[in-house]
């Protein structure tokens, strides 16, 4: 009896953890490499969710929605970086620019979609699977599968490719990397676009599970900030671990202590920071 609930909670937690991972990975790398506290990241997530909903509910195809939100949030990220952020590489000023973008993008979304919560689930992923006495939702299982695939892809990108290596080197010392012929401006633009795409994809994957509503962006932005700090700013491995921990913390408390569900991730962050101010995996 108690075990079934625990299993469900863990499955939900892992699924949510993968969504957190997609969302916070970009934020963490943008943080570590470009030194931008990117307040617009939550808006990318929100827009990814709305676009994913619109496209997939009309075409009846989840993948179409994901691809559409990936391309549109990628384009948005490119425009933001190329037209605004690139102009002034001054961290606090850039923070203000992203705050302005957050207010603007969230409000435009609200004007277009209003206060309603939209949700659309592809029919083939509806329903549950019974695993003995445990009830498992098909879609959450699907999120885990997609998450694992993406996790492997991300791991290969960062550890086995030239670009991944340059990004990691840039996080270590973004000035010295240029002394080896790397045009850091290009890397900045690239990483901002990739981060935005990941946030958009995360948003579109969340829609069939939790739906999309106007404050989704800001809520998840705060979670993502917490996760990035838990993992250690700019630490890719740390962000991965922290995302899963945060997902588990939130879902476990949602099952066992609902009043802790909202603050759980922040409590986790507080605990980690008190013990290790530089984050879980940063030395």
């Amino acid at each position: 009896m108690a075990l079934e609930i625990l299993v469900s909670a863990i499955i939900d937690g892992v699924a949510l953890g993968f969504i957190f991972l997609l969302l916070s990975l970009g934020l963490s790398v943008i943080f570590g490499l470009m030194r931008i506290v990117n307040f617009a990241h939550g808006s990318m997530f929100l827009w990814g969710a709305y676009i994913g909903y619109e496209v997939s509910s009309r075409t009846g195809n989840l993948l179409a929605g994901i691809l559409a939100s990936a391309s549109i949030t990628g384009l948005m990220g490119f425009l933001i970086e190329y037209l605004l952020l690139k102009r002034l590489r001054e961290p606090l000023t850039q923070a203000i620019i992203t705050i302005g973008l957050m207010l603007l993008l969230d409000r435009v979304a609200w004007l277009r979609w209003g206060d309603i919560t939209y949700i659309w689930l592809p029919p083939e992923l509806e329903g549950t699977i019974l695993l003995g006495p445990t009830i498992i939702y098909k879609y959450r299982l699907f999120v885990i599968v997609v998450g694992i695939v993406l996790l492997i892809a991300v791991y290969i990108f960062f550890n086995r490719t030239r670009y991944g290596m340059i990004i990691r080197a840039g996080i270590d010392d973004r000035e010295m990397i240029q002394a080896f012929g790397v045009n850091i401006e290009r890397v900045f633009t690239g990483i901002f676009v990739v981060g935005s795409v990941l946030a958009g994809v995360a948003g579109s994957i969340l829609v069939p599970w939790q739906g999309v509503y106007p404050t989704l962006g800001i809520n998840y932005l705060l979670y993502a900030f917490a996760i990035v700090v838990i993992g250690g700013v700019g630490s890719i491995g740390g962000t991965m671990v922290a995302s899963l921990l945060a997902g588990l913390a939130q879902q476990l408390s949602a099952y066992y202590a609902p009043y802790l569900a909202e603050p759980s991730i922040f409590l986790l962050m507080l605990a980690v920071l008190m013990l290790r101010p530089s984050g879980l995996l940063r030395v």
Binding site: M165, I166, R168, A169, I171, D173, M176
Partner: peptide, 12 residues
């Protein structure tokens, strides 16, 4: 680059 391996430092 402290978090990169020796070989990766050379590859940079």
């Amino acid at each position: 680059f402290p978090t990169l391996t020796v070989e990766e430092n050379l590859l940079v």
